[in-house]
Amino acid sequence: MSTRNAELLMAIGMLVFSLGLMWNIHSDGLVIGWMEERGPGSGLWPFWLSLGMALCSVWTMVRWFNGTTAESRDESPYMDPESFGLVVISFVLLTAMIFLVQYIGTYLSVALFLGAYMRFVGRHKWPQTLALMGGSIVFIYFLFEWQLAKYLPKGLPIFEDAFLWIDNYRWEYLM
């Protein structure tokens, strides 16, 4: 897709989004005007701002038709073909890591993500990859769970139990 087409598509998308916001506020029954003795309705602020967003999208579309914006005259690809693959694989791996958190927990998914990225995207050697995978687990556990006392998701019960054992060890011997 060219940048030119992408700009029009984005403006249409943003227009639909803005109208959707306005519809959402209206359908929730929020007052978009003045309420006697009570002041501005709770829908006033978001409704009129959403209308402003819709008007800005129309304005961009008008500028696109007139060829005023630089993007509307740009026929080059919207996504750089040379780096498109790298961007997509990075995003897919990131999404996979977040998806896996509910099953295998934060630590394993973080380590797998780092390992996959370094080994298959970066072609780094195994020792360096494994060192960073292990290091990331220790760093996150130490900073977030230990120092900041934040609970990070551990996934299925089997992984939860494993970390309970580590937590117990920490409380018993290291605190």
Binding site: S90, L93, L94, M97, I98, V101, Q102, T106, V110, F113, L114, Y117, M118, V121, G122, R123, H124, L132, S136, I140, F144, L148, K150, Y151, L152, P153
Partner: peptide, 24 residues
């Protein structure tokens, strides 16, 4: 290399947001 920096930044983003809001 970017292939080390990128995943580290992504991981920090994920853990940083989760630890602040406690919500996936």
């Amino acid at each position: 290399p970017f292939t080390i920096l990128t995943p580290i930044i992504f991981i920090l983003c994920f853990v940083g947001v989760f630890s602040t809001t406690d919500r996936m």
